[in-house]
Design a protein around this nucleic acid. Structure first.
Lengths: 289, 289
DNA sequence: CAAACCTGTATTATGAATCATACAGGTTCC
DNA sequence: GGAACCTGTATGATTCATAATACAGGTTTG
């Protein structure tokens, strides 16, 4: 039902404009250059520029006014959820926003080598694999793939998994969880995640891979989470610690939001990057065989 | 000599296969389905499958053996740098890997609204904007855009910025930095970042936006970093804290790698040696974030 | 009002991506 | 050796993104 294909040059211009908007170079309400001007600037036809603007409009970033121009949308309708380092959704959640979980897949399979290794399994041992999607206010924002050793997974049912946090079920089974390691990274949306998160294939995703261990050191859960960056991001407060010789940042624990600033636009999470005209020097560096 | 454009269907299949490889579903050494099989599976022509495999091969993920098949590359040549939550590069650095910094752009500009707000500037106040690229072992892995209020930026020169960590220069100017907030997200590479990081436009990037404050609450640095996910990622250890009612994960502090070789995880800071300046734009200096 | 913008839409033409097919040469396995 | 795979390569047809151009209608400005 989707057009399924993304043009190339159009996508390029779309990304460029998108970056300039989210970076604040084109502030809300601003009118961006006319289609003929953009076409000339990027040495493409006006049709291609239009396709790029179509993408921006579909994303709600711009608003077109026939006869007048195309304008950056005033109200950022999309405000990402903010999560803690420990991946705890902050107060936004308990402030009335509702989260929901949908179980997409459930079954017992032979794990990949990487997962078997991270969980410390013997060859041939099976794992319970589940794929879930989390939604906030009805909109999907995360795509979770979990792997649990079979002997733990058997202690709960498919229905229970759909209704309760996985870690709670694991701990209920008598397994102690005291330690975990996690890595944060970025990737492109594959077909499955794209469909579940209502995204185009190739959209950027924020990923979190966490392995939970029991005291003995055996892994009990392998979690791979993929988040829509426009709806979810990690946020943390840091304090400067250490003496002169070795000053560094450390995560601030406990009460973070102490300074109620004037504007408090806290979760700006702007992406974006360079803008305007990055001096000829920057252009010089780029040499792509 | 690059085609400069990425096909659509081919890219789609490339992403799909890439996901299956990095997810471990196709372990290193495994032979993936033959080109005719892949073509049939995805309802595309064999030519298209080939283009997808070309991308994987160029990325070093697979290896093709004429007459035999296409195999997942055994040795992951790409080893991402691992950084701490506080964005401190861990010991990999002092294990002989060298980091360099290139200054791509430097100047004083009027900040975007978002940046002005985050730094608490008055309308009309200018900021110093700099764009830098960091490299490890000669390969770029991060694209940094920093904005600093003009009155701080004027206390150091362009050459100093290229040679020393920005935060050190800020603190040298007498400004105290005791607090910061940061957000981690994901985005797609725009033209500038893609060129600097030697990537295709539209590649996924891990982003970090950090705002550093002085005790009075004024912002003194706005940092926007974009990382190549294949060369950089955030890692952290967590411990389960709290009582039964409110169990949660908290970052584990000061824990080096518990299992193996116990070494000082304290990072050895920059040695004062700096490179030469071959061109005005391509200075190479060693520094630490 | 009129000139000069703007977006929306349609036209045809061109080039790129993809398809369908065929064949050459290497590898694997019986 | 030979059948059955595989990758590498080439061909022409077809689909589709893009280019180039033109025109309709609304908005802004003088």
């Amino acid at each position: 039902m989707k057009s399924a294909v993304e043009p190339l040059k159009a996508r390029r211009i779309y990304l460029l404009l998108r970056d300039r908007i989210v970076a604040g170079e084109l502030p809300p309400g601003a009118r961006l250059p006319g289609e003929p001007a953009l076409a000339a600037e990027h040495a493409v036809s006006r049709v291609t520029v239009r396709r790029a603007l179509d993408l921006l409009e579909k994303e709600g970033l711009v608003q077109r006014k026939p006869g007048s121009g195309t304008f950056v949308h005033d109200t950022r309708t999309v405000r990402p959820i903010v999560a803690d380092l420990s991946n705890v959704l902050s107060h936004l959640i308990d402030m009335g926003r509702s989260t929901d979980v949908r179980l997409l897949s459930f079954g017992y399979v032979l794990p990949s080598e990487a997962i078997a290794a991270s969980l410390g399994l013997q060859p041939g041992e099976r794992v319970q694999r589940s794929v879930r999607v989390r939604l906030i206010d009805g909109e999907p924002f995360s795509y979770l793939t979990t792997h649990v050793p079979e002997w733990i997974g058997l202690t709960y049912s498919e229905a229970e998994l759909a209704a309760r946090p996985l870690l709670e079920l694991i701990e209920r089974s008598g397994v102690e969880t005291d330690r975990a390691t996690q890595a944060i990274n970025a990737t492109l949306a594959g077909p499955d995640a794209a469909a579940a998160l209502d995204l185009e294939i190739g959209s950027p995703l924020l990923t979190l891979t966490r392995i939970v261990y029991e005291p003995s050191g055996r892994g009990v859960e392998h979690l791979h989470a993929q988040y829509r960056p426009d709806r979810y991001s990690f946020h943390m407060d840091l304090v400067r610690t250490g003496n002169d010789g070795e000053r560094r940042w450390s995560p601030a624990l406990g009460r973070p939001r102490s300074s109620d600033k004037s504007k408090t636009d806290k979760t700006k999470t702007d992406k974006g990057k360079s803008g305007e005209k990055p001096t000829r020097a920057a252009r010089v560096i780029k040499q792509r065989s």
